[in-house]
Design a binder for these strands. Sequence first.
DNA 1: GTATGGTCTCCACAGGGGTGGAGAGTCACT
DNA 2: AGTGACTCTCCACCCCTGTGGAGACCATAC
Lengths: 138, 138
Amino acid sequence: MAAVGIKTGMKIGVLAGRSGLPVKTLRYYEDLGLLPAIGRSEGGYRLFAEESLRRLEFIRRLKTLGLSLEEIQGCLTVHDAGDLPCTDIQIQLERQIGRIDAQIEELGQLRQELQGLLAGWQSDPAKERDVICPNLRV
Amino acid sequence: MAAVGIKTGMKIGVLAGRSGLPVKTLRYYEDLGLLPAIGRSEGGYRLFAEESLRRLEFIRRLKTLGLSLEEIQGCLTVHDAGDLPCTDIQIQLERQIGRIDAQIEELGQLRQELQGLLAGWQSDPAKERDVICPNLRV
DNA sequence: GTATGGTCTCCACAGGGGTGGAGAGTCACT
DNA sequence: AGTGACTCTCCACCCCTGTGGAGACCATAC
């Protein structure tokens, strides 16, 4: 009969201090559904479980790996359903490698083009009619 | 004595058709000062010179090379002052190569990290206490 | 009782390059 | 005179991940 319905938990400032994230960011994450609070205090303050710290670590890690909050939320949803999110995370990370490869490819081509242009660059060309930059011929 | 003060020019729709850019974009460029109109018609319509087409080509080219509109505007300001913008463009393009190199470097490191994680990925690991994804150990 | 600090909600802004729509005015053709 | 196409201005919204502030409430210490 004791302690029934009693919600204990950190207030947002404590979680901010322990996680190193700004209070604003935690509210933002909560709004997005990334970081559910276990409830509210009588005064209306958000209360977070200890587990939130783990969750924030997870979020931070996946963020540094370049996943969007939406993608991270997808993984967390799997976790919250009681399943291991490993497979989903693997898929996301593979997708992320794909995006990175595409970006690197694109950047490499652009770099090539820029290098080519600068290789033949004339620092003081004659002015040309109908062209703003004779080097670019445009 | 003939044709004094008469402003001739394309209306924005014509320029849009000939340049291939949407009317909205041309207005946006004009607002930014990238694409000055030679004036307004009696009815208040923007009028553009033939030269605007060249200017838009120039803008488009530098955009494909990855310069921001602000950087492009810097080059155009030099041009409008009557100077050749080649040197400024060269500087911008070199800076752009620098940015690209930094990005590629960063992406490469991230890719490395992702590859490393996925290399040892276990598709069906045992659940671990205090960890959302055992593979990431977070 | 009151000062201080934590927290609440709601709204706005940042960056960069536009895009969409409303409502009104203009132009050309019939 | 009317119709339709074109243009004007002004405001809002898109992407994404937050951040800043105003005004009000809550909690704790003195």
